[in-house]
Structure formats: C-alpha cells, structure tokens
Design a protein around this nucleic acid. Structure first.
Lengths: 236, 236, 236, 236
DNA sequence: AATGAATGAGGTTTCATTCAT
DNA sequence: GATGAATGAAACCTCATTCAT
C-alpha cells in the first residue's frame, strides 16, 4: 500500500538480492534478538507514520528486508507485531513513570510535575514512538485489535496511578477522594491531549506547554483540596 | 465477462428467483428522504458499534435492506455516508452548544456548566451517536478520511469556543489569556474523555460526573484567574 | 464516471428541477423528434470526448437533462444510442461522398480529389463527429458493440467504393483490376489515418495535407495503371 | 467483515476442498519466470480474442489457473499485464524491423520490401500476437491505458522509421522531403491495415498481398521521387 | 409520456496469512 | 531458519438496465 506500484513484471531482472551473498551459499542465520529488532524498528517507523491500518505486512517486509513468513514466525500476527512495537515504544517512558510514582520523598506537587515534565520530554525526544502510541492524541483508537492495546493502556494506567498517588497523598477531602479514579482518568486524557497538541503545533517552548498543563491540573486539585466546590445555582 | 456485456434483461436465463419474496412483498419505491434516513440509521448503528473501518458497505447494505448501488447513489462513497451519519449524529448537540455559547446574559460559570450539562445529557440520551463521533473517547481517529471529519471537528470547535468565551469574559490575567487556545483545547479533551468514560462505566449518576468535571475545569480556571501560579522549585 | 462525485446526499435540496415547470403541473411532453435530438447531441459530445467505454448512461442522462428510462425508450441500449450518434455524425459526409462517387462527368483524378478534399473539410469542420467515428484514427475500435459499427462502416464502404470507381474507370490493367478491392481498402485506411493525423497535429494547412495524400494515392495508382510493377529480385 | 478479520487459517471450517486435486496433484511452487510465462500466455490469448476491455482479471485468472493476487503480484495491474503481453507479442517483429532498418548495404527498395515481407510473415505466423497489438487493424485503440501503449507504439515507430530511411536515402526532392514524416505515418497506417485485412480475409497468398502493398507504396514514392506531382485544376 | 428509485452482476485491487521447498 | 510462491476472502465502487408510479 505504501511503496508498491511500479515494479511490474516486465523486467524480471536480477531482482531483489538485498544485502545477502556472504560468500557461503547459506543464508544469514542472524540471531533471533537482532532479527526481532530489525523488524520492530522498520515496523515502528511505518506504524508511526501511517497508522496501524495504513501499513500492510508487505510494506513491513519490504522495509525491513525480512520476508513475511519470518514476521509471522516471530510475531504471530500483525497485531502481535504492533503489540511488540507498542511495547518497545513506551518502555522507557513507562519505566520512568513508574519510578517517579514511587519517589516517596517528593512533595506531591513536585512528583506531579516530574511526571508531566517526563512525558513532555519523551514526546519531544521520541516523537515517533509517541505517535505510535497515541496517533492524533487519541486515548484509544478503535481500529487496533484487542490484543494490541496492552502497551498503550499500560501508559495510561501508569499516568492514572501517578495522578492518584498525588491526589491521595495530598489529603483530599473525603468527597474528593471518592472521585479519585475518575479525576485521574480525566487528567490523563488532558495530559495526553496536551502533549500531542504541543507536539503537533510546537509553537512554544516545551516548558511553557508543560507548565501550563501542570497549573491547570494542580489548581484544579488545589481547589478541591481546600474543600472549595462549585455548585450550580438552585434554579437549575 | 467475456461477451456477457449487453444481454442484461433479454435472456432471463437460469436463476431468476432470489431477492424476490423477502417477508414484505416489495419495499420498493420509497421516497428519497425516507430511504436516506433508513440508510443513515442502519449505517450509524453499525458505525457506532464497529467503527468506520470495521464496517463494510456490504454490511450496511445488508443491514439496511438496501442494495449497495443505492448507498452510492445517495452518498457517493463510504466516507460520504459516514459524513452524513456524523452530521446527523451531533446535529442537535451542536445546535445546543452554539446556543449556549451565545447566551450573553449568563454568568461565565453558569454558561460553562450549561455546556457541560448539555453534553453529558447528550451522551446519556444518544449513546450511539456519541460513539459514532468519539469511538472510545478518541479526539480524532486517523482512520477516517479527510472529508468525513467535519462534523466531529465542529463539535470540538464548538466546545473549544465555549471554553474560550468563558475564559475571556472571566477576565483572565494577560498571562493566562495568552494561553487560552491551548487551555481550551485541553479542556475539550478532558471533557470528551470524561463524558466517554462516564458513559462506559456508568457507575454513578450523570450529575455527579458532570459536576466533578465542572469543578476540575472551573477550579483550574479560578486559580489562574486569581493570578495564582504554580512554579517548579529552583533546583529543577 | 465523468462528472459524478461531490453531490452527495447531504443536501437533498430542491433538487434537479431543470427547465420544467411550465404553469401546468404535467411534464413537458416534448415531441419525439426534439427529445431524440437533445439526447443525441449530448451523447455525441460525450462519446467524442471520452469514447464509447468512457461514458456511462448516467453521464448522458445528466448531460442531456433527460432521464435514463427515456434514453432506453428511445434507443433500446447504449449501443443503440451510439449507433444513432454515429449515424447522425457522418450523415452529411456520407451523402456527399455518395454524390461524388456518382459524378460521372468528372475525370477520375478529379473525382478522387474531390472525395479527399471533402473528407478533410469534414474533419476540419466537424472534428467531434469525426472523433466519434474514428477515435485515434482507428479503422474500427474493438470496444464497440457489434450493432453499432454500421454507420462507421458505411463511411468506410463509401470511401472504398469511391476508390474502386476511380480505379475502374481509369482502365487499370487486368492484373491491377484483380486487386481493386484490397487496394481500395488500403487507400481507405491511409486516408482515414492521414485525416486523423492531420486533425491531431494540425501544423500545416488543410490543403497541403490533403494534397499530399492525393499524390501518394494517385501516383501509386498511376504507376500500376501504366503497367509498371516492382518485383523483388530473384535471389530473394 | 464485521469481526471476521483475523481468523484466517486458524479455523479451516467447512469447505476445504476445491482447487486441490485438479488433474495434476499440485501445480504449486512454480518458479517465477515460468509462472510469468503461463500468465502472459493465457492473458495474451484472451486479450487477442476479446480485446482489452473484453477480458476481466477474473477471466485471466480462471484461464491460467492462477489466482488473481498472483497476477497482481507479478504485473501490478491489468494494464501492466497487458503491457507485458504487448511487449512480448511483438518482440521478435520489432527486433527484425530494427535490423532491417539498419541494413546499410541494401538498396532502398530492397529494404522496404524486406520490411513489408517481414511484417506479413509475422502476421501469418503470429496471428494472435498481431491481433493483440492491432485489434481490427486499428492504429491505436483509445481504450488502452496510457502506460500500455508502449509496445504497440514502438512497432509503429519502427515502421515509420523504416519508411523514413527508405525515403531519405532515395534522394527525394526537397519538396517531398519536407513531408517525410507525414508520408511515413500514412504508409504505416496503410501497411498495418493491409496486413490486418489480409489476415482477416486470407483469400490470396501472402506474397501477393505483400507485393501489392509494396507496389502501392513504392510507386507512390517513385512518382514523388521523379518530381512528378498531381495538382488540382485551376478552377478548383 | 416520463420519472425516481432500484438492482444484479461484475470490475479492479489489496490484505493477512500460509504452504512447499 | 528462511524463502518465494500462493491464496481465500473481501473491500470499494460502477454500470447497463428496468420496475412501479
């Protein structure tokens, strides 16, 4: 779907002898880990740019220089391959988020800020990986097969967890505590959306965007923390 | 093919019974508007449940009891059909949002609340339509062709507009005003996500979810309004 | 296929009320001949530009402002309609050719010249009609259904006839006479091709192209006439 | 679709017998070149008989006993496949024509004759290939996609070239030289038409038809060569 | 006489997946 | 372990043609 068209059958030529021929007639016999990495890299690049549905296994095979049967041998299915890509894409981010969540000595606001800062930095430095996980800032994209959402969801969960910890340690009112789960979810959505938006229309320094988000979230929390509450007027 | 061309009705040949007696003896000759509605309804139901990519024109034809050529005659393409569905799905919501945005006599907080309340009500009463527009809470799902995003985007724009108006009339600090656009975008994402989340895990009354969101947003605004600002500590 | 796409079903509008509404509620009731002409004109224009296969009955209906069932009522089939167009396209040309063929008082060369001149003039003045009959200078275009070739073939026959008459009256040698049919056919092909070629790359005055063709044909004849004959050398 | 996606080979389900035992127990795993040839042969036969538009990829798949995806894997598109057929169809003829064009030691008339002879022989021996290239003696058939005309046009060009060479070396008058291009084109049309006509109504030996054409062309040239010129009478 | 609505059949193309070697 | 060859299934879309009004 991507690059096809144009190499018809008119000129069979020598055809397709990639970077093989190493003296011995037998094929490369590359160790598993290495092959796997080749595939994931090629696939990730394509998935990032064109989305899950916009890439065919043929495209990936061509781009990675590895044949389709190999792709299936290693990853079972297109979804499996995407899963592996997603897994790898956010690995570092997830590790870092996990770690931040557990830094007990940090003040709640500092921890929240570190998490947000972390995420924006990740988006900046790993734009491709980010796009792979959240194309168009979507929290979830229906088009992806059930098995493949794991990695994405884990990031969501970690963020949510971070927000929850922050809120809890902050000593929210009982009223507010009851809502933690939902609040965390909403904050997560806001965060992902803000990060994606910044990445797409990067017209301001990263810090500014990150700090603005921090303020929105923190102030929202802060108010609730202090027990202030907005309520609709009676008439309504 | 191979010589077939042109002998359509002349030689009835074999097999002439098939889609003839189907329960009702003949559903033909329905006026355009009505058929259109039938198609949109069938298509919307399917799109809501399976997403754009998960439904084929054949599926829709089968479900609506109308043949594919009719679908194309009325909507030109799958995207066109989806557009029409999306158009119709949020029509009422968009009208209402537009109207709320313009209610000049309302206090800012009241207006914001009305908008949020409106949206949650819509999600409750038109779950299918909502899913059609925001499958899984996605802000945008890359898989949809360019022409079809109009209706969805219009809702986003209207929400954003509502937030912007609210913020502006509130007299935000200059600092904050500069960020309005981005803040509105983030709020929109939070709102859509919160609404979708509530719809999916409806374990609490609608008002509670809506009010919680209102508070998060309003408090965030409020703090900024008063010029309070969170800043990271020096060291970092 | 031609103009479609873009008038989807979103805005049903008042729709398609062409130039009807004449006070009385009943439709136009245009006399048969007139309607027929409307159809043929619209169809011819399209066929000329896009070829038989490049035009759909829908296109024609849209362009002529007459509904498809009418097209079928008048012409039975797409082929029938094309036939009618072809018939009309070359009517004048055929009449003229017929007349030239019968001008007994003319010298053979003059008659030939008049025929050729006639044809080039026709091509110049009725480019569309010519293209309808001989797209790309083809003697016959396989894509056209069997029933539709009549009009085109008639032109070929008339031209062939003209050449035959010319040859016969010229008093060709017996040897040559035996070949008349084939010669005429070849001349016809040369003529049609030359005319089309000139029409497409009109980089010289019409007379020049016509005269060149005349010379090629006449000189070829002339030599045979005088009994001169080229024969391969023995060895071959 | 609708959930179908993804269960390809896991559940063999019903119907698993079909294209299995077909005479030969398994035609699979044929090397590329051979398969390619199979396809081209089957396709050529069909294209020859029914024309480009009269054959569907399904027809070809069925006739060649190879599935459609293979056709596309090897030739990219229907046009690509036709191109390959056309390419192969006239390969030998084109080579021969090229060679004849360059035989410097030959007298002009001998060269012309060899070319014509060659072509008629080709038409006789490869009737199918000829029909593929020139269905109904057409110089060009609009119905063929742009990319596919190459092979056909090359033959035309080679013939034209042959005529041009012949004319130039013959020392035509300046007047005539100016017309070479157009003359060559007309001669080409005459030649193709004559060959096709002979092939269709083969009621005379090949040599006779070829020789007649040779004479027509050569005599036409000859006259011009000697400066003789036909001009319409004054009165016009 | 005229039309809007309707359709069966087929077209090209693409994809995820798996044999047979 | 690795591959070229192969495929069933389905996708979107279009067309010539006709029925019911």
């Amino acid at each position: 779907m991507l690059l096809t068209r144009g190499n018809a059958g008119t000129v069979p030529s020598v055809a397709e002898t990639k970077a093989v021929g190493r003296g011995a007639p037998g094929r490369a016999r590359t160790p598993r880990a290495e092959r796997e990495q080749q595939m994931i890299e090629a696939a990730s690049a394509l998935f990032s740019e064109h989305g899950f549905g916009g890439v065919s296994m043929d495209d990936i095979a061509k781009a990675s220089g590895i044949t389709k049967p190999m792709l299936y041998a290693y990853f079972d299915s297109k979804e499996g391959l995407f899963s592996a890509c997603a897994e790898q894409a956010g690995e570092e981010l997830r590790d870092d988020l996990r770690e931040v969540s557990e830094r007990r000595h940090l003040a709640a606001d500092q921890r929240l800020w570190e998490g947000i800062d972390l995420l924006f930095k990740f988006v900046e430095e790993n734009h491709d990986s980010w796009l792979l996980l959240y194309p168009d800032g979507a929290l979830a994209a229906g088009s992806i097969g059930s098995g493949a959402v794991a990695a994405r969801d884990e990031t969501v969960e970690l963020l949510t967890h971070l927000f929850k910890r922050t809120a809890q340690e902050q000593g929210l009112s009982d009223q507010a505590l009851a809502h933690i789960e939902a609040i965390a979810h909403t904050f997560t959505a806001a965060t992902i959306s803000a990060a994606s938006h910044w990445a797409k229309h990067a017209d301001e320094p990263r810090d500014v965007a990150a700090l603005r988000l921090m303020n929105l979230l923190w102030m929202g929390c802060g108010a609730l923390l202090e027990g202030r509450l907005w309520l609709p007027e009676a008439g309504r």
